[in-house]
Structure formats: structure tokens, C-alpha cells
Design a protein around this nucleic acid. Structure first.
Lengths: 217, 217
DNA sequence: CCAAAATTATGAACATCGTTCAATATTTAG
DNA sequence: CTAAATATTGAACGATGTTCATAATTTTGG
């Protein structure tokens, strides 16, 4: 073997990540191994270490792709609801988040399977991706302001978007991973067919928050 | 070697779980291996498989202990605030959750590092533990009702407690794992000294929710 | 009380994992 | 065209979960 392939560094990197995306999607995170990736792209495991310093960093880059696609998905939802009432826009955005989580469940779960405490300092780009993810929500909240936003209001919006997002995420995560008490037995066997519980919880959360938000103005 | 020890099945089980708790606390989840446990309790790795069918199930039982301690902790907080205003009680309960998560961070993180989708059906006891964890919150919400609770109200309280809990958990989880945009740089280096962001977010969430709750009555 | 059956712990083995690195094959430079 | 630089390999190391025949110990039953 030992034949040098016609792949730029960047091409190889893209190839690896694309194959990683596919492996996680089809076989789950535990099968994301250097050997499986190598097998998929016609390289030996060691080659991957010429492109990524460790499997952990490779997974971080895979998460980066997932975050980027999620951001795009959310932004699309946000733009599609321009002009509609605040409540409707937030519900739609939350539903977009759930849809993404369900469609790409393994990749979405992988986002939370990694401990960032030791790498995040060196990987600023990843923090930027997280930040970007909040933009669509911040935009929606900003649009809902009638008077022009002051600096103080901008900070407040940033905070509120984080609260809302974390709450919706908490409901979505616990619901999807079966870590909430189950009310509907049937829904346990096929989550995709019954997101009633989720919808009720999220809509009530959003309505509550909006009511208070409108009062404050 | 091969000397049979003076340990009941149950004693050995307790010994293993106790040692597992300690290993996770001191060395983190990745060091929770059959070999490390064996070394700690003076047995060979294979012995553990006489008590637990797999490391995955062992970890589930460890999570059971964590859930039980968390429940106790929350119940204590709930009882300590009896008679106080609803808002105060919820803030205190949420703070109790954060305290537990910070004090036993590795064990608490382990709760969410496991995919339950394939085991939960066979392990009803674990679902019961999750259910129990909601009791203190449900009790607080029930106490806040002035008129006696109807059946409909009881269901509503159950739902509301799940919404509130999931939201607080979402904020806590994302905040603790560094998956939220950081506003305060200093807090990143030493979280224990600065939970300002967390406190602001949770208190605003709770206040908002309470305001709506009180209006409904 | 002792031999036979049942139980319990052992240690070696297997496949797989992340990772390293000297050796080899290929490309680039002079 | 030779020599330096680079890319890829394949073998190896230590560690993991798990299995299982073997050996050690306890229990049983006559």
C-alpha cells in the first residue's frame, strides 16, 4: 500500500469529518473510532493523527459542524417568521430546535457527550459557534421591541435569550433522553409520533415568559 | 489467592458501589473501570461481573445512589422553607440543586453521561427514583394553592413542576458545563466563586413563572 | 463427620480502543 | 537526478469490557 493519495490537507480533513458525521448518524457515537473512520475513507488509523491531534479534538470539530448546521436551521426558522407575533415566532423557533434534535439525534446528543472544561480555552472558534447559535433568538427578541433598543436593553435581551434557550433546551433534552417522568406510555415507544408532552411544556413556558416580558415594556 | 471473602452478596454490592462513588469523585468517570474497582476493594475485575452483569448496569446503580442523595437533599430544602413565600421556596430549592451539582459534580455529570434508551424498560426502579425527585417541587407548588387541589389541578401541578424543573436544570447544566456564552471572564476560572450569572438567570425564570402562576389562580 | 454438590473467586485470554513511532513510500527542491 | 522534505503505513503498547475454564471455598446431605 503506502500510496500517497491526491488529497490536500483540507480535503482530507473534510473527508474525515464527513465520514465521522455519517458514522455517528448510522452507527452511533461509540462506533466513532479512528479505525472505523480509516476504513471508511481508505486510510489507516494513524493517518487521522496527522490531521487531528486526538480523537477528542476530532469530535470537537464534528460538534462544530453540528453547531453550524443547527445555527443555519434556526436562522432559517427565524427569518421565515418575520413579521409574525412574538409568541408564534418563539414557538416556531423552539419547534425548529426539536426537529433538528430529532432528525439528527445522534449528532445532537454528541454535542453534550463531551467535557469542554479542558479544551475550551484553546478553541475560541468553538465558543464563537455557541455564541452564534443565540443570534436568531436574540434577533426575535430585539424585533419585538417597539422602542429602539438602548445599551441596557441589549444586555437584557442577551440574558433573556440565554434563559429562554436554556429552558427550552432543558425540556427538550430531558424529554428526548427519557429522563422525565413519562405520562404517556405510548409515546415512550415511538417518540417521533408523539411530541404532545413536549409541545405542551414548551408552549406553556414560552407563553408564561412572554406574558411577563410584555408587561415589563 | 482465590480466597473466598466474608462478604454477603449485598455487602459486596455495597462495597463496589461505595468504591465506585469514590473513584468517580476523586478521579472522574473515565477511571470508573472494573480493574480500578477491583483494586480498590481487593478483588479481581471478574468478580464484579458476579454482582453486576455489565459496567453499564453498575453505572446505572451508581446513578441510583446519586439520585437518591439528590432527592434527600431537595426534600430537606423543601421542608426547611415550609411556611415561607412561594418565590422564596423555589429559589431555595433551585439553589439546593446547584449546591448539590457543584459539591458532587462528577457524580452529577455521570447522571447525564448515560443513554437510558435501551435499559430503562427493564429497570423500573430507576424511573421511580426520577419520579421521586420531583416530589419536593410538587409539594411546594401544592402548598401554594389556597383552595384544596382538584384532580385537574394535581395534573397541572405535575406538569408545571416538570416545566420548572427542566428549565432550572437546563440553565444549571449549560452553565456548569461551559456551554453558555460567557459574560464574566473571571467566573470561568473559578465557578464556585461566582454563580452570579446562574443566580440571575434562575431567579428571573422563577419570578416570571410565579407571576403567571399567581395570576391564574 | 466427611464426601459430593454448589457456589464463588480467580487469572488468563480475546477483541477493541486511543495513541505512538520507526520505517517506508512518495513528492518536492536544488 | 540526487537529496531533503513530507505523507502514509504497519506494527506495537497499554488499557478497556467481557468471558470462561479452573481452582478454591462453602454448603449440603447421608
Amino acid at each position: 500500500m503506502a500510496r500517497r493519495k491526491d488529497h490536500t490537507r483540507e480535503e482530507l480533513k473534510a473527508l474525515i469529518l464527513q465520514s465521522a458525521w455519517q458514522i455517528v448518524e448510522e452507527q452511533g457515537l461509540p462506533q466513532l473510532t479512528a479505525r472505523n473512520i480509516g476504513k471508511a475513507i481508505g486510510y489507516v488509523p494513524g493517518t487521522i493523527y496527522n490531521v487531528f491531534p486526538s480523537m477528542e479534538i476530532l469530535q470537537l470539530h464534528l460538534n462544530g459542524i453540528t453547531l453550524q448546521r443547527l445555527s443555519d436551521h434556526l436562522e432559517k426558522s427565524s427569518k421565515a417568521t418575520q413579521g409574525k407575533p412574538l409568541e408564534k415566532r418563539l414557538q416556531t423557533l423552539a419547534k425548529a430546535y426539536l426537529n433538528f434534535a430529532m432528525e439528527f439525534q445522534p449528532q445532537w446528543m454528541t454535542l453534550f457527550a463531551q467535557d469542554l472544561s479542558e479544551i475550551k480555552d484553546r478553541e475560541q472558534w468553538y465558543k464563537d459557534l455557541i455564541n452564534n447559535m443565540f443570534s436568531p433568538l436574540e434577533l426575535i427578541l430585539t424585533d419585538a421591541q417597539k422602542s429602539p433598543a438602548s445599551v441596557r436593553r441589549k444586555d437584557q435581551i442577551r440574558k433573556d435569550s440565554q434563559i429562554l434557550w436554556s429552558s427550552v433546551h432543558g425540556i427538550t433534552y430531558l424529554w428526548m433522553t427519557g429522563k422525565l417522568p413519562i405520562t404517556d406510555i405510548e409515546s415512550q415507544q415511538n417518540k417521533k409520533k408523539n411530541s404532545q408532552d413536549w409541545e405542551y411544556m414548551v408552549s406553556r413556558l414560552i407563553n408564561t415568559y412572554i406574558a411577563h416580558w410584555q408587561n415589563e415594556k
